[in-house]
Design a protein around this nucleic acid. Structure first.
Lengths: 227, 227
DNA sequence: GCATATTTGTCCGTATGTATA
DNA sequence: CTATACATACGGACAAATATG
């Protein structure tokens, strides 16, 4: 019995299944940034062949989640300060375009309203990991105001990378808590069709968020990795 | 002697080499949009194994140049009108961000000035394929005003796709010729630090360019593929 | 600095399921 | 409906590069 290790898990290709699992492990912090991913070990761990795993590595590398060093292997990406600065530049440009394209009747706004409510409930429950996840989905929905699949895909990449940054911290509460209120104001402006106000509020949000993420990164480097 | 087919071609990994070659064939139109890429045939053509080729296919698929249909194989992407509309939305958002971030002393502006001159020379020489290539590099340089590697990478993807659109046409002269003058005006505004004028000129450029590409696509569908 | 062990890069052959003629 | 072709996935092999003692 050769290929029968996993058979009853939907009709999705095996590569997609495992790629999704590894992606989950990456953004959940289960695989520490900088860690080397041995082909033999990971392949054995998931019960797949090295060839199949290498295809998966290529996928995740193209999504900036893994780094490929020729003849040395693949490693979990370690987004540092430079990456954070770059990521927030991307966010600034794309999300600025999103608020500029916003129309009050756009379905993405309804989704954002829902996600905002979910964020509030998660905060009350003290589930900060969930707060972070929903917060990112909130901003993802915002980008959908552009009605561009490619722009959303690009944004998804940087959000996944940003999660990799957050995965380096233990306490992420202070990285999300202060910004729920800002999100609420921003959404209200969008719903009211006040583009200028929304644009200013977005600037405020991104500036503060970037600063706190950078500060957290620097704290981490001083106090030790501890992962 | 097993892996010694290609040895004296730099120290670049084989996958990167072949991926580059196939990418060249795609954007040059050598591989027609919609064509099926058989693993066996392509692998034999380049003298590589199917395993290696599959890794390459994953790479090019993640760059929107190939389309992967599970259990059916990979095909050259056929960007249609919907893709063009989407691509120009991306261009609008990103390039708008670029002109907004422009400062007259930025080195990218010098590169754009050079490329504009090259475009003029290529036009005089009647080399329209080169005009198109340099024109795209001109806009690529513009995006570098953002100083964001990720934004540039995202932009590269849509430009590569756009080349796939152009690859469906035989005559691309009228798709580039009228816009050299617009590029010159836009660059002059950027060099003068007149963001507002540059922003308006960018809108004009993108609107007209998108319209002419869409029109060419529709003409193609009427008159037949002819590949 | 060198010999050795490990790992990557790439190949081949083969079995199995899915799509198409 | 059967048969063929092909994509998917497996395992094993070996050279070259890298890491290790």
């Amino acid at each position: 019995m050769i290929g029968g290790a996993i058979a009853e898990t939907e009709d999705q290709p095996l590569t997609e299944q495992i790629a999704g699992k590894i992606r989950e492990m990456l953004i959940s912090g289960e695989l520490s940034p900088g860690a080397k991913l041995s082909e033999q070990q990971i392949a054995g761990q998931f019960g797949i062949s090295r060839n199949t795993l290498r295809e998966i590595f290529r996928l995740l590398t193209s999504q900036n989640l893994l780094v490929h060093l020729p003849n040395r292997g693949v490693f979990v990406a370690t987004p540092g300060e430079a990456a954070v600065v770059d990521i927030y530049r991307v966010r600034h440009v794309i999300q600025k375009g999103a608020v500029q394209a916003a129309v009050p009747s756009h379905p993405a706004l309804r989704r954002m309203r829902e996600q905002l409510a979910q964020t509030g409930r998660a905060r009350e429950a003290g589930d900060w990991r969930r707060v972070g996840t929903i917060n990112m989905e909130f901003h993802r929905s915002m980008v959908e105001l552009c009605d561009s699949a490619r722009l959303s895909a690009c944004f998804d990449l940087v959000l996944a990378e940003l999660r990799l940054v957050f995965a380096q911290f233990e306490d992420t509460a202070h990285l999300h808590e202060p910004y729920i209120a800002l999100n609420a104001e921003l959404l209200a402006s969008l719903e009211a069709g006040d583009i200028d106000a929304a644009s200013r509020q977005l600037d405020t949000y991104l500036l503060r968020s970037e600063r706190s993420v950078l500060a957290a990164l620097q704290r981490r480097q001083v106090s030790g990795v501890g992962g």
